[in-house]
């Protein structure tokens, strides 16, 4: 089961430039939370803070607290954080020189799983969960780059799921995909939310409306409004949210 995340007074900087201002957010477990907002509003920085990737930037700085369940992320080793809070990026990024099987197995091996039987089982389970198993089971030794863009993205989701995280962060996971592949990713998100907590950044309003339970609107580094998705898309409270989702800016 996924865990909840609690964000309090989160601030983030790149050098002198502050990109996030006092963000408070409760991310519910086993729910899909969508982050929307115009380019440069801080939404990608925000989810990069949720698995401490933001700090890998040389001039980046973070202040405030983020808790996964009862634990502060800042009390944990960043490598452990990234195992329990996985990330899928906009562009599918399978390891190009590795086979389909090894793309999944590598994370498991790094986590200390060596027995080939267990590795096979875990790879199969991850591929099944990502709804990719039936399409690749006969060519697991083929290079991952032989897959279509949509399949590569599901492979990346399988790779993230293989290490059994609590939370899955997705940064515009379908923006580079065709409509059918996008639909498969959305169906997949709907299925895996039973097991994981999902936070998704998207520029696609309809996608947020379709898949998210909660939606948060960011603007100029501030969290303007967060509510049930149906509420946000029918009756937003803040005029800036209304103007953004109705296409008046951004």
């Amino acid at each position: 089961m996924g865990k909840s995340m609690t964000v309090r007074r989160l601030q983030a900087w790149y050098g002198q430039h502050q990109v996030l201002h006092n963000i408070d957010m409760d991310i519910e477990e086993n729910r899909v939370t969508a982050i929307i907002g115009p380019s440069g509003c801080g939404k990608s920085t925000f989810i990069r803070c949720l698995n401490r990737m933001h700090e890998t930037h040389p001039q980046a700085r973070v202040d405030g607290d983020i808790r996964l369940g009862d634990e502060s992320l800042f009390d944990l080793d960043p490598v452990d954080v990234r195992r329990v809070v996985g990330m899928v990026f906009q562009k599918p990024n399978p390891f190009p020189t590795m086979s389909i099987f090894d793309n999944i197995a590598i994370g498991l091996k790094l986590a200390g799983i060596r027995r080939s039987g267990e590795l096979r089982d875990r790879v199969e389970r991850a591929l099944r969960m990502a709804a990719l198993w039936d399409e690749v089971k006969d060519r697991l030794a083929k290079p991952a780059t032989a897959l279509s863009g949509g399949q590569q993205q599901r492979l990346c989701i399988a790779r993230a799921l293989a290490v059994e995280p609590e939370v899955l962060l997705m940064d515009e996971p379908a923006s580079a995909l065709d409509p059918i592949s996008t639909m498969r990713i959305e169906e997949l998100i709907e299925e895996i939310k039973q097991t994981y907590t999902i936070v998704i950044v998207t520029h696609n309003m309809q996608q947020a409306a379709r898949i998210a339970d909660k939606t948060a609107f960011f603007y100029q580094g501030h969290l303007i409004e967060m509510d049930d998705t149906s509420q946000m898309f029918t009756k937003p409270k803040d005029k800036r949210t209304e103007d953004y989702i109705t296409g008046r800016f951004g």
Binding site: M205, P236, E242, I245, T246
Partner: peptide, 9 residues
């Protein structure tokens, strides 16, 4: 147009 919010209403 896939309207939302005030437009949809």
């Amino acid at each position: 147009q896939q309207p939302v919010a005030g437009d949809l209403r």
